[in-house]
Design a binder for these strands. Structure first.
Length: 896
DNA sequence: TCCCGGACTTGCAACAACATTA
DNA sequence: TAATGTTGTTGCAAGTCCGGGA
């Protein structure tokens, strides 16, 4: 149902800020979601006390309505083709369903004794994970030759040759005191901006649990000496093992090698496992830590029934970082009448209320197409096109320099769609005879013109754009002003699918208001449709979802494009935090999970065996789950969809993986696996063709259903988060030495790189890479020649002889001391350049950002920065600081 | 149990802005 | 000051996973 709107912008009177504020004052309204209650329960007990529990009982405030313009409300739920979830509150979730009663293993707290058989079985099958390699990473992790041509996944190796810049900022030695009380306000309420933040945010009372437990307590031994291995590859065998600490160790699954420590008891996977974790932990404590899996050694810091809820230390105030962030927060609060919150709005579970009041201005549309009237050629002759035809021709013309132009599918799809616009009787009958060069040239000229604009012109243009867009940039969620992520509707264009996408080149039609469904609070004014005379497709008031608007993807109408809040928003932050809490929870379960799947490698039940091997691969290699894909998508795979041809078994126990994963990024890896896994893979392949599914009995829903029996809320992707974060945590703590900030940053980058390699985060090599390398090489040679000359000069000067002419034909008449100084300087320059080159070469295909944004618990980074006095701004840029605002007040002792 | 709609996260590339160098 | 390189931001494609209904 179309909805007419007539309300002015609700933000007309906003006093805007420059950008997101990192630390916000809070307002809690939505109720705690029972969805992830298990996780949340843990989360609330385990760490920084910042999770908003203190305020979750506060009544929702509608106060903001008083200061917002209200418009005529037109609901259209009736007409909605889709049932509004809001109308049918969902009561439970899978996490809740996976209750401890159903699956005792799911909760270490419901520890039961095992029956004798299971106990015996569990003891026999204790995984190799209890064996740990003690080789330190430092021993063998560094300085290998460049491996650019190898996929990331095969490059699990150390390299500490990272460059760093000089650092001048004071150390990040303090953290914000956490917020313990919500500040429920309406926009008319008085702000306490004038009160120092430290006093505005009283100390937490329930912090210092697991997460804030000193990482070395009870585990004094350096982690580096007690590390597990995971995912080692053949090629980096020598240096492997040390870095992938909490991850599954490779091979040596021989139970005879296992620790004599009394292990956690397991049933088989059909029977829910019963864990006697607490007692196991106690017993293990007495033993040498070396034989205890990381997950258990750190357990004391995550123990659920831990009673030592210590009060968080008041933190030192004074670091530049602290002051900076605090200032930002204060300014933001001052400048806005809307509340900024550091607290998390609870409830991110499906079907649960995400917000009470939601106000926003809808979306902004791209400007209409302005015809340029440059004529393309057909058979060498200029052709007249209508504006619509010309628009699509221009989309194609600008693709000239891209790889898509080499792809027949792209051209074919474009031609099909463009031809529909041209009509059957158009003069243009064949794409081959088309010459788009005039249009391409015109576009290049326009680009150049834009480039040549003066700074003032550019600035004016930018300001103009900002002015137009400003009102769409913000939403008010329960009285808190939050940034909107993607408020711009996607412009029309040609679909640029990745890899060999069957739909590449198809026309993405222009999205109109009548394509867009708006989601907004019941009491909020409906956003005015920015295109006069048009109206929204529908307006909903569904507070169980977080999207503000959506439209159907023009390429695949079954799918949707959503407008969400920005990453820095409270809602996103809360869900981020829950994600990491879930991954931390896995730490408590991992040993038993590994034991369970290890046992099932040899199960008679094929499905069980496949689940076991798939889980092993997901755990060990950080593979993605691998959902089924339609024929109209690129042919990529994940773990469950691996084909027989993607895995080659090489005797005695090596598997060679070679497949296209997400975004058609190749995953290539040679891995030594436990013998039962190797044998199982051979069995799964037997009698199948290369294109057949390796795991024919398995799909992601079966796998995840099984994982949920082992831990509430556990899915395949949690392993990736877990393995990434624990790797960072352990590498940072193993490798950070006393040194300057620059050296510490190198350690961080090194750890970050390892995670990126584990996750196979790749990037394409920049076009100018080889050119840049040649330049650097050239400079190094020049410096080396200079060095040679200087040495000759020095030699002669010491003997009292006059200097020879240098390459420029000039003489350097310097005292020996001065020459020595110059030699030293040149050496430093050469070293730095060589280091830069190595880093550049090393990282040319590694994307560090993805893991930082999505997989590494920011609390690890923040706590490490605090412990080692590294300014957080050296690691997180402005966006990440905003995104991870919720993590900033973590205790310095936090360990993942 | 399977299928599919729906909602959300993850991921890379392109572009823009800023910094450094010649 | 322009050219070049680096870092940050945005765009949007491509995943994961959940829940409801047949």
């Amino acid at each position: 149902m179309a909805v007419q709107t007539s309300v002015n912008s609700v933000y007309d009177d906003f006093d805007e800020e420059d950008g997101p504020t990192i630390f916000k004052r809070s307002k809690q309204t939505a109720k705690q979601s029972p969805l992830n209650s298990e996780v949340k329960k843990l989360s609330s007990q385990r760490h920084d006390g910042h999770s908003g529990r203190q305020v979750s009982d506060l009544p929702a405030s509608n106060g903001q309505n008083s200061c917002l313009q209200k418009g005529k409300m037109v609901t259209s739920n009736k007409a909605s083709p889709v049932k509004s979830p809001a109308a049918i509150p969902k009561a439970s979730t899978s996490s809740v369903k996976a209750s401890p009663e159903k699956s005792p293993i799911a909760n270490p707290k419901t520890l039961n004794t095992l029956d004798g058989k299971a106990k015996h079985s569990a003891e026999r099958n204790t995984p190799a994970s209890v064996k740990e390699e003690k080789k330190s990473f430092a021993e063998n992790g560094d300085s290998e030759d460049s491996e650019d041509d190898k996929p990331l996944s095969t490059r699990l190796k150390g390299n500490s040759n990272h460059t760093h810049k000089g650092l001048s900022k004071p150390a990040f030695t303090t953290s914000l005191p956490s917020v313990s009380k919500s500040i429920v306000k309406t926009c008319s309420e008085e702000s306490d901006d004038e009160v120092p933040l430290s006093s505005r945010f009283p100390l937490k009372s329930n912090v210092g649990t697991s997460s804030s437990k000193p990482y070395n307590s009870g585990d004094k031994k350096p982690l580096g000496s007690t590390i597990h291995r995971n995912g080692s590859t053949l090629r980096d065998k020598q240096q492997k093992s040390s870095m992938l600490t909490g991850k599954r160790p490779l091979d040596k699954a021989n139970s005879s090698e296992q620790s004599s420590v009394k292990k956690t008891k397991l049933s088989d996977t059909q029977t829910p496992m019963k864990i006697k974790q607490a007692s196991v932990k106690a017993e293990q404590k007495a033993d040498d830590d070396d034989h205890i899996p990381i997950a258990q050694r750190i357990k004391s810091s995550t123990s659920l029934n831990k009673s030592s809820f210590t009060k968080q230390k008041p933190l030192k105030v004074g670091s530049a970082s602290f002051k900076k962030t605090t200032k930002m927060s204060k300014n933001a609060a001052k400048n806005s009448k809307y509340i900024k919150s550091t607290k998390m709005t609870p409830s991110s579970g499906d079907g649960q209320k995400k917000w009470t009041n939601l106000v926003h201005n809808g979306v902004i549309f791209p400007p209409p197409y302005k015809p340029h009237r440059v004529k393309m050629l057909y058979n060498g002759k200029p052709v007249d096109l209508t504006a619509d035809q010309e628009e699509v021709a221009t989309m194609y013309a600008v693709m000239k320099d891209t790889d898509y132009m080499q792809k027949d599918k792209f051209k074919e799809n474009f031609w099909t769609d463009w031809r529909k616009l041209l009509g059957k009787n158009h003069v243009i009958q064949s794409l081959e005879k088309c010459d788009f060069t005039p249009i391409y040239d015109w576009c290049q000229q326009e680009k150049e013109k834009k480039k040549q604009m003066s700074t003032e012109e550019k600035k004016a243009l930018k300001e103009d754009k900002l002015k137009q867009e400003e009102k769409y940039m913000w939403a008010i969620v329960d009285g808190v002003k939050e940034k909107v992520g993607n408020f711009r509707v996607e412009p029309p264009g040609l679909f640029r699918g990745r890899g060999e996408h069957p739909k590449m080149g198809k026309l993405k039609k222009r999205i109109r208001p009548s394509d867009i469904t708006i989601n907004i609070g019941k009491d909020a004014p409906i956003p005015e449709c920015p295109i006069p005379g048009e109206s929204w497709k529908e307006v909903r008031h569904d507070n169980t979802v977080t999207w503000l608007a959506f439209w159907n993807d023009p390429i695949n109408p079954k799918e949707f494009k959503y407008v969400f809040l920005a990453a820095s928003s409270t809602l996103k932050g809360q869900s981020d935090k829950e994600k990491y809490e879930k991954a931390r929870m896995l730490k408590d379960y991992i040993e038993n999970i590994r034991a369970a799947y290890t046992k099932n490698f040899t199960s008679k039940d094929v499905m069980k065996r496949q689940i076991a091997v798939a889980t092993y691969l997901i755990d060990k290699l950080a593979l993605r789950a691998g959902n089924e894909k339609d024929d109209d998508e690129a042919d990529t795979v994940g773990c469950c969809t691996l084909k027989v041809e993607n895995v080659k078994a090489v005797a005695p126990n090596t598997l060679e993986f070679n497949f296209l994963g997400k975004d058609s990024i190749r995953y290539e890896n040679k891995v030594e696996v436990e013998l039962p896994v190797y044998k199982a893979i051979i069995q799964f392949q037997a009698g199948k063709r290369g294109s057949d599914d390796l795991f024919d009995q398995l799909d992601t829903s079966k796998l995840n259903a099984h994982l949920k029996e082992l831990m509430p809320g556990l899915t395949a992707k949690v392993f990736r988060t877990y393995n990434a974060s624990i790797t960072l945590d352990e590498m940072l703590n193993r490798e950070t030495r006393n040194g300057d900030v620059a050296e510490k940053i190198v350690v961080y980058q090194h750890a970050n790189k390892e995670v990126a390699i584990i996750c196979n985060h790749q990037r394409s090599v920049s076009k100018s890479h080889s050119q840049q390398m040649s330049k650097l090489n050239e400079k190094i040679s020049q410096l080396q020649s200079l060095l040679k000359e200087l040495k000759t000069d020095l030699d002669r000067a010491r003997k009292g002889k006059p200097p020879l002419k240098n390459a420029d034909g000039k003489r350097r008449n310097l005292a020996p001391e001065a020459i020595e100084k110059k030699i030293a300087q040149t050496n430093v320059k050469i070293e730095k350049m060589e280091r830069d080159m190595k880093t550049k070469e090393d990282l040319k295909t590694v994307a560090l950002g993805t893991s930082k944004i999505n997989y590494l618990d920011p609390r690890i980074t923040v706590a490490w920065c605090k412990r080692h006095e590294v300014p957080i701004e050296k690691i997180f840029n402005k966006s990440l600081l905003a995104k991870f605002a919720w993590a900033m007040d973590v205790d310095p002792d936090f360990r993942f």
